[in-house]
């Protein structure tokens, strides 16, 4: 129920986590019209989608598994977001903020 988009991102191979799209102080109310339903009012949107001059912009921050190939994962995430929002035209911004085994860190599982 939280976000089908978020699930679509998590379904991409190599994605370990989806982080809040913005840090707390950057989350300005108003102006940004989220296309996503936010159920809990105080839960930060993990994926932010907003209209800007007629075009949608999606902002995603993810963690990637050390076993994956980060550039490939990132491009696959951008494609997954575009697919999910189609036919809406969207510019996708993906940032990798962490390359590590998922949380909690799986102890001594490095290869």
């Amino acid at each position: 129920m939280t976000s089908a988009l978020q699930q679509a991102i998590m379904a991409v191979d190599g994605v370990t986590e989806v982080f809040p799209a913005r840090n707390l102080w950057q989350r300005l109310p108003g102006r940004a019209a989220s296309l996503l339903q936010r159920n809990a009012a105080d839960a930060p949107p993990l994926v932010e989608v907003r209209e800007e001059s007629g075009r949608a912009e999606a902002t995603v921050r993810i963690g990637v598994s050390p076993d994956a190939r980060t550039p490939d994962v990132v491009r696959a995430v951008a494609a997954a977001v575009r697919n999910h929002l189609a036919p809406e035209k969207v510019a996708v911004q993906v940032t990798v903020v962490r390359i590590a085994a998922g949380d909690p860190p799986a102890a001594s599982q490095e290869d």
């Binding site: 491009r75 969207v90 510019a91 940032t95 990798v96 590590a100």
Partner: peptide
């Protein structure tokens, strides 16, 4: 990071690479 679609902006943080 290179993107397949010119509209996209893909990147990784320096912090994630240091880690």
């Amino acid at each position: 990071l290179r993107s397949d679609d010119p509209a996209d902006t893909l990147s990784e943080t320096e912090g994630s690479i240091l880690a």
